[in-house]
Design a protein around this nucleic acid. Structure first.
Lengths: 217, 217
DNA sequence: AATAAAAAGCCTCAATTGAGGGATTGTTCT
DNA sequence: AGAACAATCCCTCAATTGAGGCTTTTTATT
């Protein structure tokens, strides 16, 4: 690995003033080199091939192909390119979509030049760069998505009932369930009835829906 | 808000050498003050009440109550306390559990003193602090958990069929569905039939199960 | 030992559902 | 223009399901 080599950065940014500022920061700092700057992602493929960036500084708000969509496309075609999203917005949806698109960082436009260069170096080294505020949102999103997966509400189902609910969610009809677990058809139906009561539902589809949504099975 | 006030930091760390190092860094830096240092979390409640920290530096590997469990307990009792996990390990499980426990940051022990103080300030200001390497793992975990939620297999369901499948998963019986979407009962049943064909299932419960498991709705 | 709770069993009626058949109206694509 | 398809509608029969009411046995729990 050539550690003396500059980090080559391509900029996608539709505001020419911001663009100039970024280019000046990059080319004025030893170790960094801006090898391309583009005002839209409409020719992203040629642009990337021409500028051969190690890191892409990607704006989100652009006419035509937006930065998040472009991130997905570039990552698919050039997986080794590191992409750092840079935007004024820090709403959950954009952060969420950027991460899903494979972005290697998400920093806000009020980030200082020093921090920006630091972030570029971090992503170049295989890390991911978040502003503390963005990281806070990522952590919250994380908890939000993970929490419902672990907190299983307790409906006090008996083992029999859990067993039968499991089979119901597999789509096994009650006569088959009875055969499978060696209970009479009537008994199975009684258990199902009591499941409905405990889950506050009135049909098999509802029970299955609730069971799967709330991770009961 | 008193901006001149020192950030009060409590340290939980069972290695006395590390402990001393951290305390020296904190008390030797203007703006930071170590108000308590403890070698275990066994008396976490009294320790927190006594040291009144803004930020807790929390080691994971401790005898008795470990740092992750302690994080959960402290966050429950003192939600305003910011907790920065600091550890030598960067495995997925620990990062995952720390986030779920409500940690406000996760930094590695090889982090430089400057970066550590920066992280403390960041979490004090409401942000979340990750090392770039940790952030990379968080991003990967995120994609790993989110990906199966968005990669929707395509069964070529028509819009009508999707609409009806949605209602089915809510437990609405077909006669009600017909009323709701102004179609005849027979038509709804025909759509349901075609849904079953496309999904390769034979009952409503199976269809609902498949729809929820594969995030079709 | 008494009591409560869960599990198992049974029956009936009406509603819902699954599977078979066939038909009409549009749209789309060749 | 014709074929293919999606969307709509209709009918019937048998299987399944939901809701009601009722009994016995086993298993905790007190």
């Amino acid at each position: 690995m050539d550690e003396n080599k500059n980090i080559q950065v391509a900029i996608f940014e539709d505001n020419p003033i911001m663009m100039d500022a970024y280019r000046s920061i990059l080319n004025g700092s030893p170790g960094y080199l801006c090898t391309g700057s583009f005002t839209s992602c409409n020719n992203w493929k040629q642009d990337i091939e021409k500028s051969k960036p190690d890191v892409v500084l990607m704006d989100i708000e652009m006419t035509g192909i937006n930065g998040i969509k472009a991130t997905g496309l570039i990552k698919k075609e050039f997986p080794e390119v590191r992409i750092l999203i840079q935007t004024v917005f820090e709403d959950d949806t954009k952060i969420f979509e950027s991460l899903c698109a494979g972005a290697n960082g998400y920093i806000l436009k009020n980030t200082s030049p020093v921090k920006m260069l630091e972030a570029i170096t971090d992503v170049q080294n295989g890390g991911v760069a978040f502003n503390p505020a963005v990281a806070a949102k990522v952590a919250r999103l994380f908890q939000q998505f993970i929490a419902p997966m672990v907190s299983v509400p307790d409906y006090q189902l008996s083992n029999r009932e859990k067993e039968i609910l499991q089979l119901l969610t597999e789509g096994v009809p009650m006569p088959r369930i009875a055969e499978k677990i060696f209970l009479s058809y009537h008994t199975v139906r009684d258990h199902v009835k009591s499941i409905y009561q405990k889950l506050h539902v009135a049909s098999a589809t509802e029970a299955v829906s609730k069971a799967l949504k709330e991770k009961l099975v």
